[in-house]
C-alpha cells in the first residue's frame, strides 16, 4: 500500500485509475427485435412439433363438435369455430410459453439474459411476440376449416389479424408470468396446462348453455374476449362497436399481464434481489 494520510477516511484514491467507461446498454427496440428474431428461429431449428399439435387439437375439436352442433349461423356453431381458433393461441402463447420460461428459469438459462445489458421488457416482449406469431398460421387454418365445416361466412376472417396479436398479448403475458413465478418447472407446466384447459372448456361451448357460476369464470378468462370478438364477426351485420370493446379488453389485459411478466422476469432473473 502506498503512503497515505491517516485522516483522509474515504480515500480520494489518488493512485487509482479512473473508473472504466461503461459499454452502452442495448436499447429496448433493437434488443426486442433481436430476441424476437432469435425466438422465431427456434421454431425452425427445433421444429417445435407442439405447434402442429396445437392446430391438430383444434381441428379435432371442430370435427368432433360437428357431430353434435348443426351447421349454419347459430350461436353454437359460432362459439365452436371461434373457440377452437382462439384455443390455438391459448395452447401456444399461454401453455408453451409458460413451459419455456419455466424451463429457462429452472435450468439457469435466465442468467444468460440477466448478465447482458438488456431491458427486461425486451426479453419478455420478444419471447411473447414470437410465441404469439407462432399461433397465427394455426389460427387461420383452424378458422378457415371451421367456417367451411359449419357453413359460416369467410368474409370477416381478417379480424383474426387483430384477435391473434391482442389475445396473444394477453395470454402470453399470463403464460410468461406463470413460467417465471412458478417455484418449480413442473408447476409452470401445470399452470400452463390448466390455463389452456380453461380456455378450451370455457371457450368452445356457447356461453348461453353455461350455469351462472361458470359464466362468471368464463368472463374472467382473457381468451373469452378474443373468442367473443371473433364470434361476433360471423353475423351478417357485425356489431363492430362490441367487437372493438372485446378487443379493447384483450389489449388492456395484455398490457397488464405483459407488465406483470416484465416484473416477474426481473424478480426471477436476479434472485438475490
Amino acid at each position: 500500500m502506498t503512503a497515505s494520510a491517516e485522516a483522509t477516511a474515504p480515500a480520494a484514491t489518488p493512485g487509482r485509475p479512473a473508473p472504466a467507461p461503461l459499454a452502452p446498454a442495448a436499447r429496448l427496440l433493437p434488443a426486442l427485435a433481436a430476441v424476437y428474431r432469435a425466438q422465431l428461429s427456434r421454431a425452425r431449428v427445433a421444429r417445435m412439433p407442439l405447434l402442429f399439435v396445437a392446430t391438430f387439437q383444434s381441428l379435432g375439436i371442430l370435427v368432433m363438435m360437428r357431430g353434435v352442433v348443426d351447421s349454419g349461423g347459430n350461436d353454437s356453431a359460432r362459439a365452436v369455430v371461434a373457440g377452437s381458433s382462439v384455443l390455438v393461441v391459448a395452447f401456444v402463447a399461454l401453455n408453451l410459453l409458460a413451459q419455456y420460461f419455466g424451463r429457462l428459469r429452472a435450468t439457469g438459462g435466465l442468467d444468460h439474459y440477466a448478465t447482458l445489458p438488456v431491458p427486461p421488457a425486451a426479453v419478455v416482449l420478444g419471447a411473447a411476440g414470437a410465441y404469439a406469431s407462432f399461433t397465427l398460421p394455426g389460427t387461420l387454418v383452424t378458422a378457415a376449416v371451421g367456417a367451411g365445416l359449419f357453413g359460416l361466412p369467410w368474409a370477416h376472417l381478417w379480424i383474426l389479424l387483430a384477435v391473434v396479436p391482442l389475445a396473444g398479448a394477453a395470454l402470453s403475458g399470463l403464460g410468461a408470468v406463470c413460467g417465471l413465478l412458478a417455484p418449480r418447472q413442473e408447476i409452470a407446466t401445470l399452470l400452463g396446462q390448466l390455463g389452456m384447459s380453461a380456455a378450451l372448456l370455457l371457450g368452445v361451448l356457447p356461453a348461453s348453455r353455461m350455469p351462472e357460476a361458470v359464466r362468471l369464470l368464463r368472463d374472467l378468462l382473457p381468451s373469452t374476449y378474443g373468442v367473443e370478438a371473433f364470434a361476433r364477426t360471423f353475423d351478417a351485420a357485425p356489431d363492430w362497436a362490441a367487437v372493438g370493446a372485446d378487443l379493447a379488453v384483450c389489449a388492456a389485459v395484455g398490457l397488464l399481464s405483459l407488465t406483470a411478466a416484465t416484473r416477474a422476469y426481473r424478480r426471477a432473473a436476479v434472485s438475490g434481489r
Binding site: 439457469g108 438459462g109 439474459y113 445489458p117
Partner: peptide, 16 residues
C-alpha cells in the same frame, strides 16, 4: 453487464 462478459455453466438460453 456493461463491464463484463460472462460465460455461465448452462447453455439452455442458446440451445435452440
Amino acid at each position: 453487464p456493461r463491464l463484463l462478459g460472462y460465460l455461465g455453466q448452462e447453455s439452455t438460453a442458446l440451445d435452440e
